Simulated scan of single mutants.
Amino acid sequence: MSTETRSTAPPAPTRTARALNFLYRALIAELRVYSSIGRAIARRPAVPRGGTGIAYHQPVMTILIIFIVLSAVEIPILDLIVHPWPAVRIPILILGIWGLTWMIGLLCAMLMRPHAVGPDGIRIRSGLELDVAVSWNDIASVAIAKRVDEPKQPRITATEEGAEYAERMQDETNIEIELERPVTIRLPGLQPKGGHHEVIRIRLWADDPRAFLAAARPFLIAAD
């Protein structure tokens, strides 16, 4: 007699849910662009009091700067080309300035929203959206462990011990956080790539892994 196997996977999001989620994420990203520029002007990185910010932007910094320079050069060139046609010139000028502002905001977000190691735990960040917080009570150890994964691997992958979350920079991570127990984290977007996931290990990239470890060590000792 055959038994029916029930799937525990969450139902796929509807088209309406996907559209609303896209609009919400676009709005958050747009707001973060301007808030990050404001933080850069005020020189106020998003690091908690008593914490340390650890950068992760070094591998992509050159590419971002090249895109910003090209976007800035493109605006006057296109404006010169379409100058005789105001109906075309004005929308292109607005789009060009908006695109340049967005690229500058993305760069500022990477500079002003670093990984944060503070009294409450570790916050893993990336760009405009990602902000995953893990408390010291859930962290068993933090170690330097460089790994290079296959391209286009998902952030959440299955291992023998449980699910693993990896926030890579150009397919690489160099910090490994072992958790005391499975911990639920929330990633931007909807299931299966986003949403809530229960993980047992976290990997991430830090420009200075030794500084990351040095910042975490006093809190790990205190937690013990």
Rank of each mutant, 00 (worst) to 15 (best):
L70T: 03
G53C: 14
A87E: 11
P48C: 09
R32Q: 14
M1K: 10
I122F: 01
P119G: 04
D207W: 06
L80A: 13
V60H: 02
F212L: 03
A17K: 11
R6C: 03
F219K: 01
S7T: 13
H196Y: 07
F212W: 06
T101H: 05
R49W: 01
A9Y: 01
K146E: 15
R155Q: 14
P86E: 12
L128Y: 07
E172H: 08
H197R: 04
G194N: 10
A216F: 06
L70W: 13
S36I: 11
E161L: 11
M103I: 01
L204R: 03
A223E: 14
M110G: 05
A145H: 15
I37L: 15
E4R: 10
R181M: 10
K146N: 08
L95S: 03
P154D: 07
R89L: 11
E161D: 15
G38Y: 12
F212P: 00
R147K: 14
G50K: 02
A55S: 15
A55D: 15
P59T: 06
L100D: 02
V88W: 12
V117N: 10
W98E: 11
L23S: 08
R186S: 13
E164A: 11
T157F: 03
P119I: 07
A214H: 14
V142E: 00
A17Q: 15
M110C: 10
G51A: 07
P119T: 07
G162P: 05
D138E: 15
A211D: 14
Y34N: 05
D208T: 04
R125I: 12
E30K: 00
R186F: 07
G105K: 03
G99Y: 06
A158C: 06
S7P: 02
I124P: 00
L107P: 02
L78K: 09
Q58Y: 04
G50L: 04
E198H: 04
R203H: 12
I156L: 08
G127E: 09
V33Q: 01
I139H: 03
M112T: 12
G189E: 13
T8M: 11
Y24P: 00
R43K: 10
Y34C: 06
F22G: 11
L80V: 03
E176A: 15
N21V: 03
K193W: 12
T184A: 14
T8K: 08
G105M: 03
I28Y: 10
P10V: 07
A87Q: 06
P76E: 13
A215G: 06
W205D: 00
E167Y: 08
P59K: 05
K193T: 12
A29R: 01
P182C: 08
V82I: 12
A26W: 08
N174A: 07
I77V: 15
P209G: 02
S7G: 07
L187Q: 12
A26G: 06
E129P: 00
L190F: 11
V33N: 01
A46F: 04
E30S: 07
A55I: 05
L23M: 10
R217I: 01
A140G: 03
L111I: 15
L95W: 06
A116K: 09
R125P: 12
T62P: 00
S35L: 13
L27W: 10
T8L: 13
F212T: 00
R113T: 11
P151F: 12
V142K: 09
N174T: 08
I202P: 05
I54P: 02
L23K: 02
